[in-house]
Design a protein around this nucleic acid. Structure first.
Length: 370
DNA sequence: AAAGCGGGGTG
DNA sequence: CACCCAGCTTT
């Protein structure tokens, strides 16, 4: 049984005076150095929750316009709960990781049904909502209500690893438990929300992964990692990701002035979003051109029950997703007749496609249509 | 081209 | 505890 007390690190954080110094310096620094971000102008837990979910896997500059639009269109949990999922996905389009939007929508419905439309204010109730874990629950309730709850995410993970000179990979079980312990111990009694924001901001602006700006850091004299010159070694590397190449083919089928799209099935990738039919043909090198077209036509007919004939290559798109690097060859295709639309697929004119929630490659291909 | 973000859910 | 998640920006 791994115990956090066995994890090699610097124990200064256990000293009350060290923690007092840290709090004072960090909060003072935040007063002068905090970025002016839209979600810092509110104490509405709903708005802060939306920002926290958007900020997962996505950077600040990307999130800002999405956040402002989302709050304008859905100013309350009830407004979000009343929206169609497709409409929510359309507003999320481009942010990626669409499960976040679906969970946000589902949680808004739960808040409306179970909490009378008011964002819950106990840690347990917030944690019980879909898409909300320990970090997000702590962030929302500390920032909006100053509840004394710790947060450990990428920025604080790195900052706290350095403040305790953590000598092990920070995501391993025992080191991670220790980091949460540290995050809880250093919180002030008052202003826990400002403190958490300050810690994350310091990690984002100064205590960066590479070349941290220790000269400007208000915590430099408290930092054992800086003292020992280990900034590039701490936190330890988790592991290097091995990319995997994939070859996909998309079918842009046309009949008169309409194009065929389908909804991605539940449980799979891009679930609930629309896209042109696409097929994984890895490894593509094994198939000569004719055989590739025949294989795609076969799969298309098997899936949708009508035939198309592949034409020329419309476009090659390369996109990376998690550990995959995908080369997507999009082909035009002709359908002899038009099958009836269903809830899962159908024929659309280009102007109708504008209103469908599409994944990024689907949207890029749709812009090539007449 | 590679690195970094990135917590939540599942099994 | 390991693995998955179907994109984007920065370096």
């Amino acid at each position: 049984m791994a115990d956090s007390s066995d994890v090699p690190h610097d124990g200064s954080w256990r000293s009350a005076s060290w923690r007092t110094q840290l709090r004072r310096r960090l909060l003072t620094w935040f007063t002068t150095s905090a970025r002016d971000l839209p979600w810092r102008k509110t104490r509405d837990p709903y708005a802060i929750w939306v920002s926290e979910v958007m900020l997962q896997q996505t950077q600040v500059a990307t999130v800002i316009p999405y956040f402002e639009r989302f709050l304008r269109d859905y100013p309350t949990p009830a407004a979000l709960a009343a929206a169609d999922e497709a409409e929510v996905l359309r507003r999320w389009e481009g942010l990626g990781y669409y499960r976040r939007a679906k969970q946000l929508h589902a949680a808004a419905k739960r808040i409306t049904a179970e909490h009378g439309g008011r964002f819950p204010e106990t840690f347990e109730a917030v944690l019980a909502l879909p898409g909300i874990g320990r970090y997000t629950a702590g962030a929302v309730l500390s920032i909006s209500r100053d509840q004394r709850l710790p947060v450990v995410e990428a920025n604080t993970l790195r900052l706290y690893s350095r403040l305790i000179a953590l000598r092990q990979p920070p995501t391993a079980t025992a080191p991670n438990r220790l980091l949460w312990e540290v995050a809880a111990a250093i919180l002030p009694r008052q202003q826990a929300g400002r403190f958490n924001q300050a810690a994350m901001e310091l990690g984002a602006l100064l205590c960066t992964p590479r070349n941290p700006d220790c000269e400007r850091c208000p915590l430099r004299s408290l930092c054992p990692t800086r003292r020992e010159g280990l900034q590039e070694e701490i936190p330890g590397k988790v592991r290097t990701l091995q990319y995997e190449d994939r070859s996909h083919v998309a079918v842009v089928a046309q009949h008169e002035d309409r194009f065929f799209l389908r909804r991605c099935p539940p449980g799979g990738h891009w679930a609930g979003l629309w896209d042109f039919p696409r097929y994984d043909l890895t490894p593509a090198a094994a198939l000569p051109g004719d055989a590739l077209a025949a294989e795609v036509e076969r799969r298309f007919a098997a899936e949708f029950g009508f035939a198309v004939r592949l034409g020329e290559k419309l476009k090659t798109l390369r996109h990376g997703v998690t550990r995959f690097r995908i080369t997507l060859d999009a082909f035009t295709a002709e359908a002899n007749r038009r099958e009836a639309d269903s809830a899962e697929c159908g024929w659309y004119q280009p102007h109708e496609i504008l209103d469908l929630p599409l994944n990024t490659t689907g949207r890029k291909l749709s812009r090539l249509l007449p």
